[in-house]
Design a protein around this nucleic acid. Structure first.
Ligand SMILES: [Zn+2]
Ligand SMILES: [Zn+2]
Ligand SMILES: [Zn+2]
Ligand SMILES: [Zn+2]
Lengths: 164, 164
DNA sequence: TTGGTTGCTGTTATATTATTACGTTTCAGA
DNA sequence: TCTGAAACGTAATAATATAACAGCAACCAA
């Protein structure tokens, strides 16, 4: 079954899984990637990334500030967390969900991938889905209208398997 | 040429056209639609819609407030304009562009249509494009993952024909 | 090591976008 | 004309994000 292995199935974020493993893996990947690029994953940035990965639902910047305050006993000001978010976005380690003003960990930060999000309006989980075909269709369409595309944002809201 | 008439071409918003006509037409359509539905397109709401249609680039809520102030010599507070926006959104007369926190007139408010936006990062123009096929592909994909989709948001940023 | 440069973080203030709460006015329908 | 619901006015505030500048730490070249 060479093709059927790529068939969609229930995303891991919606299953009862070992989530500590998700976090661990994401942090290791991030460290490797930053090392390779000569980018500095500082303690603060690593912390922000870890907190973002704490669950599969996007987190707002001010949520992150609160969580940092709880852990560190020291209040962090908005610019601090926004700068970390900017770094993580630049490195492709997280994505921003515009419709939620929130941030979520990226599942394949090493690829230069096109992706979109299935967001559950009930539990908040955001599942990242590869968007290669869709993305290409959009590109082609836009090209025919004389547009040159630089970035695409596709966000889909509905109900996840658990919340139905 | 029965099919080729549906082929994409340079969108009207990116051409040198009689824009007064765009505005006029949008307002007439809006009036007819609201009349048919028994919805009240009040002076304020009509005004907000007209200002949104003043060009083909999305406008922020506070831009609208400023424009209303200029015209009316009377300051309008945020809730006032946000309520009008909510009404216009509910009636499908405008769309919200999440990535810009801005609002733009809808080209086919009478249909229950799936649409997406090509946004020029240079001149700000936002072109509405029907997204039927793409939308269906996304639905099908999501279904296979156990998601039930309620709303989709696709926003594409790039350069329009004029700004290239 | 030293000194210079760059990048990261801290801090204060402020900008931008949006909502809550409550009182008043308007208006369609009885 | 009366009445209830919808629309609007107003003040306060919430939520999200950025600007501007100062201090510090890491890195590199001399
Ligand atoms: Zn997990
Ligand atoms: Zn859910
Ligand atoms: Zn026009
Ligand atoms: Zn343009």
């Amino acid at each position: 079954m060479p093709k059927s292995s790529t068939v969609n199935k229930t995303p891991i974020a919606c299953t009862d899984h070992n989530h500590e493993h998700c976090i661990e893996e994401a942090l290791i990947k991030a460290e490797q990637l930053c090392a390779k690029r000569g980018a500095r994953l500082t303690a603060l940035r690593r912390n922000v990334l870890r907190l973002i990965w704490k669950n599969h639902a996007p987190l707002g910047a001010y949520d992150l500030m609160d969580m940092l305050a709880e852990e560190d006993t020291r209040r962090v000001a908005p610019p601090t967390v926004y700068r970390s978010l900017e770094f993580l976005l630049d490195q492709g380690l997280i994505h921003r969900i515009n419709s939620l003003n929130a941030y979520v960990g990226c599942h394949s930060p090493s690829d230069d991938h096109e992706e979109y999000f299935l967001i559950c309006r009930e539990c908040g989980v955001a599942v990242e889905v590869p968007a290669k075909e869709i993305s290409r269709a959009i590109d082609k369409n836009a090209e025919a209208m004389g547009f040159t595309i630089e970035t695409q944002t596709l966000e889909v809201v509905g109900l996840c398997p658990n919340c139905k």
